[in-house]
Amino acid sequence: MNTVAIYHIKGGVGKTATAVNLSYLAALSGQRVLLWDLDPQAASSFYFRVKPKVKGGGQKLLHSDAGIFKAIRASDYDNLDILPADFSYRKMDHQLENKKILKRALEPLREAYDLILLDCAPNITYVSENIFRACNAMIIPVIPTTLSLRTLEQLTNYLQTKELTHMQLMPFFSMVDSRRKLHQDITKSLPEKFPDFLNTYIPNASEVERMGIMRAPLPVFANASKPSRAYCYLLVEIMGRLRKDRALKKPD
């Protein structure tokens, strides 16, 4: 099982759109996928039309095996389940002072799913530290702007200082406007500095914004659109990296 976090310290970089589309496409490719909406804003849950409510709140979810299973909801799509957000997640920081609670909470789901995607809220908090320990890869959407890059540097420095090197970092460019000179320059120059950057980028397109109106993943209503195809390529690239990583870590 792969546990992959979609995370960035900065908000509004396209984390939720990435989580929703990647989870849908991974499920379509035959993997059993669970998307956990960890953001109390509940945007992923909204996109999948799942009520953002967990009986007993985050506390029950994190400390009981049965609780986590009871909270899971089937999405409208085959192979894809949602663990919805709950407003109580805003207090999750207090419940996650121990940095391995989230990892332990995910343990019983190991057999049931091939891929668990964590749609994370921005900021670096105790929740983020738990996420870092629970996942084996982190997808980081980066808008090619100065502020977004600054936060990427902050994040990588933080992970290095805390010696959190077990996970694969997979930054990629999101909301790229190829007409803008700054976007062009950064998308060309940055991968040299960060060799882990994924080759695929997601273009800035109005179709992605329409996800909120359609309340469905992009391939469902705009399969042939540029960003929809870009998400397909992104998933292929991510799965390739995960497979490679697993092969390297596999003992002889």
């Binding site: 379509l28 490719s29 035959g30 993997q31 059993r32 085959d78 192979n79 091939d114 497979r243």
Partner: peptide, 19 residues
């Protein structure tokens, strides 16, 4: 388990890894 394919598989080896 559910999987979309272009053509019928002849053996398990024709399928992508997954459930």
């Amino acid at each position: 388990a559910v999987l979309y394919l272009d053509r019928l598989p002849k053996t398990a080896a024709d399928l992508p890894t997954g459930q």
